[in-house]
Amino acid sequence: MEQANAIVARLEERFPALVGGANIANERRIFWSVPLTSLMDILRYCNDELSFTQLCTITGLDNGEMFEFLYHISRDDGIVLTLKVKTPRDGGVVPSVVPIYNGAIFYELELEGLLGVEVEGLPDDRQYPLPDNWPKGQYPLRKDWKPNAETPPLPNP
């Protein structure tokens, strides 16, 4: 727990607005809701100063009212910090973290493809993971999207 507490203390010192928001689930797992506007600054600080050099993945989810985006970053000692941000379900925009974590492209393409959020600055416009001829405006991971058995199979692109 010592390491996790130390990480929380350093982040609270650098970003006073975050004080009290951390949830230390166990010695190697920290969850933290942070404002979207300071996400990039926090990620940069964690990467440069706190050795969180690995982005494990980004989870996008629809909680029915808002979209949540969870950035799971980790260090060599096994500690994983999950930073959570929220956007409105309509017209939500999150910044691309590719400048900090270069391997994030597929994770961000997945957010665009399955949830329909805009990732600002993502240097790529490939369709992933749905087929190229998937109908526009259909985002399967949204809670109000239901698979429809009536829909005819997609023709080959």
Binding site: F106, L114, R126, Q127, Y128, P129, L130, P131, P140, L141, P147
Partner: peptide, 14 residues
């Protein structure tokens, strides 16, 4: 080189 993926997407998370 560029890579395109998703040909095996089966919608398991949903």
């Amino acid at each position: 080189a560029t890579v395109a993926l998703g040909y095996n997407h089966r919608g398991m998370e949903k």
